[in-house]
Amino acid sequence: MTVPDPILTVRDLTVRFARSSVKAVNGVSFDLGAERLGVVGESGSGKSTVGRALMRLLPPSATTEASQLDFEGAPLLTRSEREMRRLRGNDMALIMQDPRYSLNPVLPIGKQVAEAAMLHFKLGKKDAYARAADMLGRVRIADVARTMDLYPHQISGGMGQRVMIAMMLLAKPRLVIADEPTSALDVSVRGDVLRLLDDLVRENNSGLLLISHDIRMVAAFCERILVMYKGVVVETLTKLEDAQHPYTRGLIAAMPDPRNPVRRLQVLDRKAIDAVGVQP
C-alpha cells in the first residue's frame, strides 16, 4: 500500500455523526501518489464521506479522527478553517456530481473562470479573460465566446463539469477529489469528462481520488480501486479479476452484461458478506 512520495497519507480515518454510534467511515487507510485511485461502494458505504472528510467539508455534527492524515507531508486535521479555505481553493479541489451547484449561479461562466485566472496568475482583467477563453477551449468547449456569456443554469451538466475542470487547470491543485463526477451525465460525454480529468491530473502531476458507485467505470479508469462496504475498505484492487472479497465479487456479478446474457442476475448475499466480516 505504500506509494513513493505520497500526496495524501491517510491512516485509520474514522468519521462518526452526532447521535449515531455507527461509524460512517471506520479505519480507512491509504496513500495517494500522483495516480488515479478509485473508491467504489454502494450508497451508504461511506465513500462520499471519505471525500468530504479529506476536504474537511463535513457538517459540524461529524467528528473526524485519524491517526495520520497528511496532505503533502503536513497534517490536515489540525489546520485552521482559514488555512483550509486557502488549501481548498489552490491545492485541493472537489468535483461534485452536479457542477451547477459548485458554480456561482449569478455570474456568467466566463467571468468566473477569469476570476480564477486573476487570482492565480495576478493577471489584469483583459489577460484574465483571454486566459479563461484559452482554458475553456482546452476543455473542448465548442463555442467559447458564446459560452462565456452564459450563466450556470443555461449550460448542460457535461459542459458544467468541463468548466469546473477548466477552473482547476488554472489553480493546478495537487489533489483532485471527484465525487461521482459523471453519474449525472449522458454516457457519451462521460468518456470526455474522464479523459479531461485524466489530462488535468497528469499535467500537474497530481493525485485523483475518483469516488463512484460504478465499479466497471472505475476499473477502466483508475490504477487502483478501494472497495468500501459499511465504512470499511474491504479490498484494494488493481484489476477486477483479482477480486476476492464476496462483496466485490457480488457487486461485479450484479451488473448486467449483454455480452454474457443471464436469465437472472446474481444478487448480493449480504449474510455471506457479513459472515466473512468487513475488517480489511
Partner: peptide, 28 residues
C-alpha cells in the same frame, strides 16, 4: 445501487414470466 438494481430487475423478469406481461423499458 447496482446490487439493488439486480434485485429489482430480477423481480421484473419473474413478474413478466408469471403474468405474461408486456414491457416497454426506457433507460440510458
Amino acid at each position: 445501487d447496482v446490487s439493488v438494481q439486480a434485485e429489482v430487475l430480477n423481480l421484473l423478469s419473474d413478474l413478466r414470466e408469471q403474468r405474461n406481461l408486456t414491457y416497454v423499458l426506457v433507460s440510458h
